[in-house]
Computed example of a mutant assay.
Amino acid sequence: MPDQDPSSMEQLHDDLHTEYGKLVDIVSGFDQRLLTIKGWGVTVSLAGLGLGFQQGHYGLFLVAAVSGAAFWLLEAYAKMHQIHYYPRMRDIEVTAYELFRVDTASGAASSPLIDWGWETAGQRIRKQKAKGTPNEPVRYAEMREERSVQPWTMAHVMFPHVVSIVVGTILFILGLGGAFGQI
């Protein structure tokens, strides 16, 4: 890399940190929206199940199942939008590492490394073989080649919506079969 003007490098460093901070704020904002979606999904589905029993109308069990599916898809869609910010966060981490890392007694150090720290934390906590060095980030595309991220299949996205769908569907089928009497 050719020598760079120190003031332009400092400006780039500041710009990267500013952008990274904004990305973290955006991702955190999505977390709040996702919790709101999950809360409304649970509320509507449980209300449908409860009203189905209270009103003695098994069609409301189907409403609970359909609303569970709708909120599951809505949450997966919002999660997909959140995930789209992760590659840029990693790009900034790798660029900051490449341009601004500092060698320390325990190895190279750079900042920010929030996303990369999350990526390597599981292996470090479980004392498994690491997929990378904790202080040396790898671009997002290089880490994700082996699998595709599908938000609707993530356990924290699908639950408790899938429970509402299953319970609502089972109760609706039982109702159709006459288990709850006539409507």
Score class of each variant (00 low, 15 high):
Q32R: 07
L12F: 00
F100G: 08
I170F: 05
E145C: 03
G168W: 02
G41C: 07
V27G: 02
D91K: 03
L62D: 00
P137R: 05
A69N: 03
R147W: 11
G56Y: 08
S7W: 09
H57E: 12
M80D: 14
R144Q: 12
T95P: 00
W116K: 05
H17N: 15
M143I: 14
G178I: 04
R101F: 01
I170A: 11
V66S: 10
L62Y: 03
L34K: 12
A105S: 13
V94F: 05
H13Q: 11
H13A: 04
K38F: 03
Q55C: 06
V66I: 15
Y20E: 13
A64R: 08
H84A: 14
D31L: 08
V102Y: 02
L34H: 06
V66M: 12
G39K: 04
I92S: 06
Q150Y: 13
T43S: 12
M158P: 01
D3F: 04
P134E: 08
D14N: 12
G175N: 04
F71N: 08
G50F: 12
L35C: 01
Q55G: 02
G107N: 11
S164D: 00
E136H: 05
G181T: 07
A78D: 06
L174Y: 00
Q123L: 07
G177P: 01
Y20A: 13
L62P: 02
G68A: 15
R126D: 12
P137W: 05
Q128W: 15
R88I: 09
V44H: 02
H13Y: 12
P2G: 01
G168C: 00
L35Q: 11
S67L: 11
I165E: 00
G48L: 04
S45N: 02
Y97S: 00
Y77V: 04
